[in-house]
Amino acid sequence: MTDTHVSRVRMTGISKRYGALQSLDNVSLDLKPGEVLGLVGDNGAGKSTISKVLSGAVIPDAGTIEIDGKHVAFTSPADARAARIEMVYQDLALCDTIDVAGNLFLGREPKRRVAGVPMLDKKLMHERARDMLSNLGIVIPDTRMKVENLSGGQRQSIAIGRAASFNPSVLIMDEPTAALAVAEVEAVLELIRTVSQRGVSVILITHRLQDLFLVCDRIQVMYEGRNVAERRIEDTNIEDVVNLIVGRKFAARSAGHNREKGASA
């Protein structure tokens, strides 16, 4: 799937500054249909910010985004969602006091009309929520439970289920496995494989490097708001990726900095 020539996503020269902090500095990102890209880097490297730019939650100061070859400018998450870009946020973005089905459908609740007045179709919502969850192999006993009463792993599953169930063309996952039990991690990785085989492009942000080698086609490393390296998964190993993330090589051989960057670009 990855040898297609038109990129699903092409971000070029993205920059974003928060006050004194240059959060993103001329970052580029390329994603092909059905490709799974691992985005790694230390805390504050800009992984979350670049993914929020793609999902419309952060508006960049500079740079261009192309989706399937067409130039786009997102001004809100709704724009990105219209372009079928879905994101699972690190902080889950769930409403604690709303039930499971309500969270799955937040912002796109099915309507029914009672005497011409649009209302929530709660019955349909709960039915479809049950189907969505069981298709993804997520076990929640009752879709009427409030999310605040669920475990961390269950909450994560709801967040992923929400993003994956609406036929996305790009799925961005920010630390999807961080709070999960061992079996749940396996289920999520399996889910990533399944959706990418259906042609969905996936961006996976994670600190669990072993996960990258199980699902990713390619790894992009960020360091202090810049792209520093890119590796095909078969050309690299955990040790290499760790070195790239902590930037030890760059610090030790500052003279070779440009050469290394050039070689990896």
């Binding site: 946020y89 409403c95 709303i98 937040l106 912002g107």
Partner: peptide
């Protein structure tokens, strides 16, 4: 309810 529970999440959901 969504705005009160998690305004940012509700905004990200396109509301």
């Amino acid at each position: 309810t969504g705005v009160g529970a998690n305004a940012e999440a509700t905004r990200r959901a396109g509301v």
